[in-house]
Structure formats: structure tokens, C-alpha cells
Design a protein around this nucleic acid. Sequence first.
DNA 1: TGTGTATGAATGAAGG
DNA 2: CCTTCATTCATACACA
Lengths: 121, 121
Amino acid sequence: MCPAGTSASLSRSSRWCPTAEQVMLLEEMYKGGLRNPSAGQIHQITAHLSNFGKVQGKNVFYWFQNHKARDKQRLKKKLPLKPQHQQIFFHATSSFSPQRPVSCISFAGPLIFTPQVYIYI
Amino acid sequence: MCPAGTSASLSRSSRWCPTAEQVMLLEEMYKGGLRNPSAGQIHQITAHLSNFGKVQGKNVFYWFQNHKARDKQRLKKKLPLKPQHQQIFFHATSSFSPQRPVSCISFAGPLIFTPQVYIYI
DNA sequence: TGTGTATGAATGAAGG
DNA sequence: CCTTCATTCATACACA
């Protein structure tokens, strides 16, 4: 969490603890609509945030990822509307027999192995 | 990752949680140069990994896809001055951490993968 | 010192 | 392949 007061940088911690200024700037950008910054944007942002404390590109990347996800999560929790998100998972449930498995993946070409063509039986 | 001592198996999670042994084997193959396993290879690998826990072909497929992509990102040191579509970076410490004591390589199967992926007994 | 919470980090799974 | 989403693990900190 690294809340105010004790600003990050000096912590010998293994993980990034953004300073108040950094968080402020990030939130500013977030409010501005930024959600999935490109690599270039991340680079720029990182450079800018560096003026306020140690920070790496990955920190910025994760910050946006997490902030967006949790923003959504909070909203979801607040409005528990009907479960409209039916997940239609059909488990392959395989007992994954070891040796002579039934034809699982029924195409054999040396072609691309894309998930879309998986055939679960 | 699914550390917490309790490896995968009993998790009621819907997603695959590779065991330490499985990860180790996958890492080994990756280090051996395997990047885009063919459907056949995936099938073999899956069969082999099944000796160490539940796993499906798509898990293996995704593992290689993700590992390759993130490995690449990890290695990125710098970004071009121009915001092209460069990659996002992650930290550089990759070394796979054994989440458990690991008593691997004990499988005695005479199985072979690809020439690059030699797994001696 | 234990417990809950906020959040950094990681990665499986898709989507495009 | 690259990008994004979802879920989880890990950790710092507030509070008791």
C-alpha cells in the first residue's frame, strides 16, 4: 500500500512503492481516460514519474493493469445485477489417459496450433 | 503461479496450476530451444507432463506462447525514441524459483521429445 | 504480534 | 504474434 507519509523510495522493499506525487500523476492520467498505455506511452510516463522517485516501466504497466481491473471490480461489486455472464465452459474433464488417448486434437498438420481448433472430447 | 505449498491439484480454480515439476520440465524444454511446439510435440509433452499432474494440450500451448512473449519483454532493455509498437518490459530477474523442494528428474520414462529437448534420464 | 485491506506482481487464458 | 483480461499470489501498512 505504501500510503502517504512514508514515501516509498527509501524502502528496501522488493516491490515498488509509488510516491504520492507519482500516484497523483497516474490517477490524473487515468481520469483522463488512459487505460492501456502503449509501450511508448509507458516509456514516457516512466520518464516523467522518475522525477518523483524511482520507477520502472513495468511498474507503470502493472499500475494501469491493476487500476483498471480493480476499478471494474469495485463497480461490479456495487451493482450485482443479474448474472448475465453465462459461462459456457464445457470441461473436457478428461481422465487424461496416459498412453493411447482418444483423439484429442484431431488435426495433425504441422500447421499452427491454435486454441480455436482444439477439440475436446 | 500457484505456490502456497498446496500445488494446483486441489485448487478449485478453473485454471491450470502447473506443479513445480511441470514447470521445471517446461523450462528445460524452453531452454533447450523449444518455442513453438507443433501439435504433435504438444501432444507428447502433455502426455509426459500428465505424470506430474493434470494438464491439457492447451495449457502447454499457452505456456509456450506466454513464456516466449514474456521472455522477450523481459529482455527488452530500451525503447525506441519513437513510440512505435515496441514492447513493454518487465524485470530482468527471471530465474525460475522452485516453489517447493523439487525432487524432479526422477521420472524414468524413456520418453524423448525433440532433438533439442533431450531429456536424459 | 495477528488480522484485514490495499495494491504490486505474476501468469493462465483469450482476443485480435 | 501482440495485446488485453481475469484471477491469483505476495507484501506493505493500518489497526487491534
